[in-house]
Computed example of a mutant assay.
Amino acid sequence: MANTEPMTQRVELATVMDRLAVDGLITDYAVAVDDGDWEAYRGLFTSDGRADYRSAGGIEGDAKEVAEWLTQTMELFPMRQHLIVNRQVRFGPLEHDTGDTAQVRADYVNPMRFAGHDGGDTTPDFVCGGRYDFALVRTDSGWRLRSVVVDEKWRRAPQARQEPAAT
């Protein structure tokens, strides 16, 4: 009987390495959006990569088009901080080779600060949360995003400040 332990260990190590690379790509995505680094954002996608932000009031399109839309839209929010948690990663086959694709479902909370406020305690924030569905593919340049779909589940926007009624 052949010893399959070294082969099993290599497969497990490759899976761990892929998991770390995928996790890094998702983190790079959040940092690119939060920092407004739209060149880096575009570089995270495959050449045919797409993003869908329609559930959050945005657009759906190729990564270049969406990056241009984000460039304008995110000017409203100079402070952004994506927190992407509860990442579920599933690897799958591409053309019968195991591990060439990955699906990531992850929850997010995204606090943002509106532009034009002084940053004090009374500055209204916009906070939203939901779930991302990321589809990734392994390329010659490493893992890249094939698609990003946002499913916004909730949001909290500032309410207009009410002045006390005159007596």
Score class of each variant (00 low, 15 high):
153 K>V: 13
144 R>T: 08
149 V>C: 03
126 F>C: 04
124 P>N: 07
134 F>C: 09
117 H>L: 07
91 F>G: 05
87 R>M: 06
108 Y>N: 11
130 G>H: 06
80 R>P: 12
87 R>N: 03
117 H>K: 02
140 D>M: 03
108 Y>S: 08
105 R>S: 09
97 D>H: 06
110 N>T: 07
149 V>L: 05
157 A>Y: 04
138 R>W: 02
101 T>R: 09
117 H>G: 14
85 V>Y: 05
124 P>L: 11
146 R>N: 10
80 R>F: 06
86 N>G: 00
100 D>C: 14
106 A>Y: 02
121 D>F: 13
99 G>Y: 01
90 R>G: 04
125 D>C: 09
81 Q>A: 10
129 G>W: 04
104 V>L: 02
126 F>R: 03
156 R>M: 13
84 I>D: 00
124 P>Y: 06
78 P>Q: 00
147 S>H: 02
141 S>A: 15
131 R>D: 04
87 R>W: 03
142 G>F: 10
155 R>Q: 14
145 L>H: 09
100 D>E: 14
147 S>W: 05
129 G>D: 00
117 H>R: 03
135 A>D: 14
156 R>G: 08
139 T>D: 01
132 Y>W: 07
86 N>A: 10
153 K>I: 13
106 A>M: 03
116 G>N: 04
125 D>H: 10
151 D>G: 13
107 D>V: 11
92 G>Y: 00
111 P>F: 01
136 L>G: 00
89 V>G: 00
102 A>Y: 03
149 V>S: 05
155 R>P: 01
150 V>I: 13
150 V>C: 11
148 V>Q: 01
113 R>M: 14
107 D>F: 12
115 A>Y: 02
156 R>W: 04
138 R>V: 14
99 G>K: 03
144 R>H: 13
136 L>D: 04
118 D>F: 05
79 M>A: 12
134 F>N: 03
100 D>W: 09
143 W>A: 09
77 F>Q: 03
139 T>I: 11
152 E>Q: 15
130 G>K: 06
137 V>G: 12
116 G>R: 03
